[in-house]
Every structure is written in structure tokens, then in C-alpha cells.
Amino acid sequence: MTKANPVIVVIEDDPQIRRFLRTGLQAHEFEIHEAETGKLGLILAATRKPDLIILDLGLPDVDGVEVIKKLREWTSRPVIILSARNMETDKVAALDAGADDYLTKPFGLDELLARIRVALRHASRPELVDGGNVFKAGNLKVDLGQRRVYRDGEEVHLTPIEYRLLTTLIKHAGKVLTHRQLLTEVWGPSYVENSHYLRIYMGCLRHKLEADPARPKLLLTEAGTGYRLVTDVSP
């Protein structure tokens, strides 16, 4: 490996979870720095220059959502949320504040590792959308420079809004986008309450791009939260 091991800052107050994360992640060759509180976590995030931050929402000193907001003031490094709160409103609040992904406790190490990989890949390839690159996932191919979309090699015709929706998802591929984020970016801020627009267009997009729209593999629904474009689809 030419590059040093990726650096992860874990902000979590529970010692057992920290221990499990430390052993698990170190075994997969990540460099781990731990913080028990939000304040300490912010300092570590600033000094250790992490590639990724894992954050627990229920911290003893500050609310996790506040930590995300503070982080987002100066860094765009991916943030993965861990939380025992499984209400959709909590997820949406964290994601809207700028988190990249969300895992509800309890979770398995495999799940966490998968999310970490997606987040790191996404973060390391921001140039994907720039400069007329081509996006590929499963049987989908999008030529962003020529604004062309192919499914199984055949060109698919998309309406302007469908295309805009797709490119927005590609721009944040692998990351969960909330309804609000997608509506704001595709339709504009005045449409944030009209989530059925998003749902209907997402349905159209699936019919055009998915093999079986009833069992999507590419454009996944995150229940009550938003959508995610999966990049590593097994064909």
C-alpha cells in the first residue's frame, strides 16, 4: 500500500462500544483515535486530520447533531452516525445537518465496514462528476459529459427532471440523501414539502433503470429518511 492507513476518529462515550470499534477497525487496518466527549472529539477531528469520523449522537456534553454542524463548518470529511435512537426524525435531523450515513445500534462490524468503505470511496473520488467523467454502477452507465444514460448498454431517455435527480444522486453516490436535500437540490427550496414529487419521479427512474422496479438494487429507499444510490451493485 502506497498510502498510509486511513485515519478514523471515533466520538463515542460508551467504553464497550469503543473497545469493540477499536479492535474491529484496527484489525482492518484503520488508525483509530478515540474521544469520549463531543468537545474532545472536535479537537481530535481538527488535530488528527481524519479521513472519516464516527460519531455517537447521544454524547454526555453536547448533542451529536451540534457536533456535525460544527464539523461541517470546516470539513467535508465523511461522518457516520451511530445511535440507539431509531426514530426517523432523528436520522433525518442528523443527515440534514450534514452526516453521510447512519447506523442504528446494535449493528454488526460488517455493516459498519461496508459503510466506511462506501464513504471513503465517495470521498476520495469527488472528481467523478467533474470533467465529463462516466459513472458506472451495476448495469447503469451515465455519461455525464454528454448527458447520456445507458442501461445494459442501451440508451435510456430521461426527462430533464429525472436526469437532474439522477445526477444529484450520482454526485453523492453511496450517501443517504434526505427527502429535503433531494427536493431542495432538484426542485428548489420551495418544494421541500412536496415529497410526493420526489417519490413519483423516483418511481419513474426505477422503472427506466432497474431490472425489477419492485425490488430495486440501485436506487434504494431508506425508510422514512430518503434515498441512496448504491455504487457496488452485484450484477
Partner: peptide, 16 residues
Amino acid sequence: NRQWCPIEEIVGGVLT
């Protein structure tokens, strides 16, 4: 939290 949703999406979400 009632919203207008396509049935297909609900079924699809569960299956995934």
C-alpha cells in the same frame, strides 16, 4: 407521518 407514497416503493423497500 402520512405522506403520499407509491405502493411499489413501500413493497420494494421492505423486500430490499
